[in-house]
Structure formats: C-alpha cells, structure tokens
Amino acid sequence: MKLCFNQATTLENSNLAKDLELCEKHGYDYIEIRTMDKLPEYLQDHTLDELAEFFNTHHIKPLAFNALVFFNNRDEEGYQAIITEFKEMMETGKKLGVEYVVAVPLVTTDKFLKQDIKKSCVDVLTELSDIAKPYGIKIAVEFVGHPQCTVNTFGQAYDIVDTVGRDNVGLVLDCFHFHAMGSNWEDLENADASKIFILHIDDTEDYPIGFLTDVDRLWPGLGVIDLDNILSILQEKDFSGAISVELFRPEYYKMEAEETIRIAKETTLKAVANYYNLQTI
C-alpha cells in the first residue's frame, strides 16, 4: 500500500515544484498532479522533460492527473473539448509515467434524468477507454458528494463503471464525497474492490447531507466520517490501491506548505494504521 499527496491540499500555499520537493522529503510515494492549474503554472518556467527527469531520479512518482472535469452530458462543443483534452493528457501522461486520469462528472444546476446521465457517462467513458488503452493509462471516475453533481453517490458511480465493463475504467472513492451525500454502505460492501483504483482520504465537520462543501474538510481522523468502517470494508476486500490525502481547507492554506504536507502524512498514517501499513520511506 502506498501513500499519495493530492495537490489540492496545498492549493493556495505551494506549487508543483515545491510540492514535489517536500513530498519527496517527507516520504510520499505518489503525487496527484492538478492539470487545471498547477501543471500549467509549472510549465511556465520548466519543461515536461525536466518533470519527467525529476520522476526518473526520485522516489516519488506521478499517480494521476487530476482532473478531466465535467466529462458527461455536454453539448457537442463541450464533448469535443473533453476528447481533445483527454488525448493531450494521454500524450503528456505517457511521457511522465502517469497511471490514472481522474474524471469528474458534470456539476450543474440544469436537470438531467438519471437514465440520461448514465447513458452519457457510459458512452463517453467507453470512448475514453478506447483512447486510453494503447497508452496503458486508466480512468478513475470520481463522484462528487454534492446535490448539483450529476453523479454524486458511490452506488451511482459504481453502476456506471460496472456497465462500462472495462479493466481500465474504475473509481476514485473519496471518503468526503461518500459521506457528503450519504452513500449506501451496502453498495460499498457489495462492490468489487478491483474497480476502486484510488482512495481519497479526508474528514469533515458535522453538517447535514447536501450542505457539505470541500472547504469543510479536515485532517483524516479529526471529523465525523466513519473512516474505520470504510477502511475495514476495503481491507476485507483486499483493496490495494494508493491512499491519497486530499483536503481543501482554507485554514490549512494559511500554513507553511511543509507543515501542511507533514501533518497530512501524520494524520493519514494514524487514521489507517489499524488497517494498512503505508510503507513510506
């Protein structure tokens, strides 16, 4: 089992170059690279070759590009933009050795029938699967636990991935999102763990279902999410994907980046200690 750092955790107090140095120093195995801001920022002063060389000469490796956003139920222009962006991710990801692209469903105030959401997701993910296959990169769908996300529970996301039925299409299980819209425990208990590619670990304050937003996240183990139940179920199912700490807490952005990265690791290791041995350096 490996430990990963998601760049959202230092979104406002760091950059990719600094995150890489600090995560290497503190013994993380992987990083999730934010493609909407942190990677373009890095490429203003560096090259992809430099980034690839860093990964080739250091312990830390790139787990995922985060993220291909709003991939489903788009108009024709939006759909074509998603396909173009994904193809670019494949080329860049191959050069860097990225294992996954995280795909986030559409968040909107528009109403779509659930059957139309599922059809769109399945159709697009099937096409993305075909594109990704020769690159050896997998697609990890991350449902978002908010009422305005078209795919907002574990069960809904799992059904979509199961219908796609491709080995290179699976899920991100984010503990915050699982809790935030009251995902069904039975859906997790009945799931095939091989379809869960990445676990995002985090915690949250005690707000009602449907009211939680990312800024309510807390260090793992310091909130009300039943992390023990999630981890025990995954352990029983022999889940072996990476555990990635992802927080969006404004107070944490006011800290020094190194302190954020250090505490994120310490709280994560403590939260998972009874279930997984994260063999960090």
Rank of each mutant, 00 (worst) to 15 (best):
F5M: 02
G223W: 02
Y42E: 07
E21P: 05
A193R: 09
A242E: 04
A64D: 01
M89G: 10
C23L: 02
V151M: 06
P134Y: 00
I196S: 01
D49C: 03
A273V: 13
G210W: 12
F5C: 00
A132T: 02
R262E: 13
L247R: 00
Q7M: 07
Q148P: 12
D167W: 02
T109G: 14
Q115N: 12
V272G: 06
F178I: 08
W219R: 07
E12C: 14
A67F: 06
L247N: 01
Y252K: 09
V107F: 08
K133V: 05
L199F: 11
V215D: 07
I281N: 15
T92D: 04
G93F: 02
V141S: 03
K254Q: 14
T153P: 06
L51G: 03
V151W: 05
Q7S: 05
P134D: 00
S129H: 12
Y30L: 11
I82F: 09
E76M: 15
N6D: 05
K2G: 13
P134M: 02
D130V: 15
T35I: 12
G223E: 08
L227G: 09
G165C: 11
Y253I: 04
K237E: 08
V245L: 05
F178N: 05
L199Q: 11
A103P: 04
L63H: 04
I230M: 10
C149A: 10
F197I: 05
V215L: 08
S129K: 06
M90C: 13
S232W: 14
E21W: 09
E88T: 09
E24C: 01
H46C: 07
A257N: 09
G182Y: 03
E266G: 12
E24K: 04
E32K: 02
V124H: 04
F154P: 08
I209V: 13
Y79W: 12
L68E: 01
K265S: 10
I209S: 03
Y253N: 07
I137L: 01
A67W: 00
L39R: 03
P134N: 00
L231C: 14
A242T: 09
L218R: 08
F112Y: 10
K18M: 11
G241A: 11
L234S: 13
T126I: 01
F178D: 07
N66W: 00
K133F: 09
S194I: 12
G78L: 04
I263R: 09
S14I: 10
K25L: 11
Y42T: 06
C149R: 02
E85R: 14
M255F: 15
E256R: 14
E258Y: 06
I82C: 11
C23T: 12
P134L: 00
D19S: 07
D49N: 12
L278K: 04
R166N: 10
P220E: 03
A193L: 09
A273M: 08
E24Q: 08
K38S: 09
Y42P: 02
G210S: 13
I83A: 11
K119Q: 14
K18Q: 13
V102L: 00
A273Y: 08
E99I: 00
V224R: 08
P208H: 10
E88L: 14
T163G: 09
F55W: 06
H200R: 02
T204V: 05
K237N: 15
S194K: 14
L125H: 08
T47V: 04
